[in-house]
Design a binder for these strands. Structure first.
Length: 552
RNA sequence: GCGCCUGUAGCUCAGUGGAUAGAGCGUCGGCCUCCGGAGCCGAAGGUCGCAGGUUCGAAUCCUGUCGGGCGCGCCA
């Protein structure tokens, strides 16, 4: 609807120019974009445009006069069937109302094709790889990992809503020092010895120690066996399964699990370094191999292979970039904690140095989550065993409430999360307010069926009353909300919208009785509108991965 | 010192150039003879950290400044 009105305003401008009531621009390339938005105050109408204000300077005309000329056109052919009224307000706003028949058409569309309501034309169709969570399998996911998991999944859903093909990817390191430390910890606990200083503590280590099969234990402790590595490999495998189960619980599944070791084993790292070397961006110094990141604006060069010959983490990253692009992705997105921002430049630079477009290497930083319990910050350490697991969080507040919490905040800002407060307030969470509206409609629909009432076959005259007119205006906005979310790659607008729609429906419920056997015709019309609202709520929640219950 | 993020109501946060800055929670006061009270209605509460600048118009853009967070390894 917003898009249709935007097109109508553009048409009005062109018509006025052709008719000579508005002058042509001296410099057509400087023409402003036609913008149409929802005014903050509903009294101004359904949609408003600031086009006249933008055109005042280039046209050297007062904005009110330009707005007047546009309004004339919109009242005529340019707005035929769509624009019910066009008014001008100082300093030069163009305020528009949309015809009832347009809104009735929206309701008819929703009822005839509920599943596609809210789907929008592809905004920027790409094949995208989204890598997120990527916590190493040395312990269960914590609340610290929770935000990345939710934000990553929400981003994927939003990208898909915008018509993009998305692969969800989890990168992990199942070899190396950390995994050996895990193996050593398991071995120590199994033997009843204290866990080493650089080992892992916590109940899950004890669980792992108890669960070690006899044959694994025998192999790990055999003469000459690398005990820590063997046990670590077994334990990390098992931990990974735990992680996968936790993620499944929050409705997150990954398409690809990629191990760091495989990037080395399959030669991706070596080939990528060779590619950089051939392009002249690699040099040796102090026995180490360096990438000349400063060529691309980094503040220092970066080590690829250490002087002892071992690759850095960065080396694997370089190989991984080539591996991902080789799979046909044209856009890579990384979701990292804000503490990793210092590593963006080197990775982006390396991608550029290998011939990739740096714009196709996108990093989304997630703001720090400060966990507090009753106002006091809780420090989280896997090694110290002092952490709250993701499963604990879900036990406390539930998946829907947790999803809503993260979906309603910008991904990059730091936030406080008080798990005790969340537990206490989980019953007050706005997500239930929205779900309640959905369940209430479902109940009304059931009641209506019992009373022998059915939705009106047509939608004509649907907006006879004020409650109907107010509700349909919110319902009709879903595609705009989805489009804005896709463009911004953020979901706060969706939660805000769902809340507003629920509020509007509750008001409608108060003012307009739906189930009324004394007036079956009006009941049928209101029922149609209620159904359209229910679909809209369900589709908005679905975009967030949140359930829309029929009763609660 | 340098880089990135951040400062909006009592609390947690929306609002990235438009008209009277919003929501949830909390506080105070009302509303169940009728489709679900997990609801509705109303009230109090803000010099958008501060100071300049750009603009017809700034919470939003620019500069400076003060406060908070996170980084600045041949760690991962």
């Amino acid at each position: 609807m917003r898009a249709r009105v935007r097109a109508a305003v553009a048409r009005a401008w062109a018509d006025a120019e052709a008719a000579g009531t508005l002058p042509a621009l001296d410099d057509p390339s400087a023409a402003p974009e036609v913008e149409v938005e929802r005014p903050a105050n509903a009294a101004f109408g359904d949609l408003a445009s600031n086009l006249a204000l933008k055109l005042a300077r280039p046209m050297r005309r007062p904005p009110m006069a330009i707005a007047g000329a546009l309004a004339d056109r919109l009242r005529g052919a340019a707005g035929a069937g769509l624009v019910a009224s066009a008014d001008v307000a100082p300093p030069g706003f163009l305020n528009l109302r949309v015809t009832d028949s347009t809104y009735e058409g929206v309701v008819a569309d929703i009822l005839s094709a509920p599943a596609s309501w809210g789907r929008i034309p592809a905004v920027n169709p790409r094949t995208v790889n989204v890598e997120f969570v990527s916590a190493n399998p040395t312990g269960p996911l914590t609340v610290g990992n929770a935000r990345g998991a939710f934000v990553g999944d929400l981003l994927c859903r939003v990208l898909e809503a915008g018509g993009q093909r998305v692969t969800r990817e989890y990168y992990f390191n199942d070899s190396g020092a950390q995994v050996n430390h895990l193996g050593a910890s398991v071995a120590a606990v199994r033997r009843g010895e204290p866990v080493p200083d650089d080992g892992y503590k916590g109940a899950y280590v004890e669980d792992l120690a108890r669960a070690v099969p006899e044959d694994v234990w025998a192999a790990a402790t055999a003469e000459g066996a690398a005990t820590d590595a063997v046990l670590g490999a077994w334990a990390s495998h098992r931990v990974r399964a735990m992680i996968e189960a936790s993620l499944a619980r929050l409705g997150v599944r990954f398409d690809v699990w990629k191990s760091e070791a495989s990037l080395h084993d399959e030669g991706w790292v070596a080939r990528a370094v060779e590619r950089l070397r051939e392009a002249g961006h690699v040099y040796e110094q102090d026995g180490a191999t360096w990438f000349r990141s400063t060529t691309f604006g980094d503040d220092k060069d970066r080590v690829i292979y250490k002087s002892n010959g071992w690759p850095t983490y960065f080396a694997a990253d370089i190989g991984y970039v080539t591996e991902k692009f080789s799979r046909g992705f044209d856009h890579l997105i990384y979701i990292w904690g804000a503490d990793h921002h210092g590593t963006i430049a080197r990775n982006k630079n390396a991608a550029q140095a290998m011939g990739y477009d740096p714009d196709h290497y996108q990093v989304l930083l997630i703001g720090w989550v400060r966990f507090v319990a009753d106002g006091v910050e809780v420090s989280m350490s896997k090694r110290a065993g002092t952490f709250v697991t993701l499963d604990d969080l879900l036990d406390a507040v539930g998946t829907d409430a947790a999803r809503w919490f993260f979906a309603s905040r910008a991904a990059h800002v730091e936030i406080d999360f008080d798990i005790e407060l969340a537990r206490k307030q989980s019953a007050e969470n706005p997500v239930y307010y929205v779900q309640y509206a959905h369940a209430r409609i479902a109940s009304i629909v059931r009641k209506a069926a019992e009373a022998g009432l059915s939705p009106a076959p047509g939608v004509e005259g649907l907006l006879a009353g004020e409650p109907e007119a107010a509700l349909v205006r919110v319902v009709a906005r879903l595609p705009e909300v989805v489009e804005d979310a896709v463009v911004a790659e953020e979901t706060q607008g969706v939660t805000a919208y769902a809340t507003e729609l629920a509020t509007q429906f509750h008001a409608f419920y108060r003012d307009a009785r739906v189930v009324d056997t004394a007036n079956p015709e009006r009941s049928g019309q209101r029922l149609a509108l209620a159904l359209a609202t229910q679909t809209t709520l369900a589709n908005a929640l679905a975009l967030l991965g949140i359930s829309a219950p029929d009763s609660m």
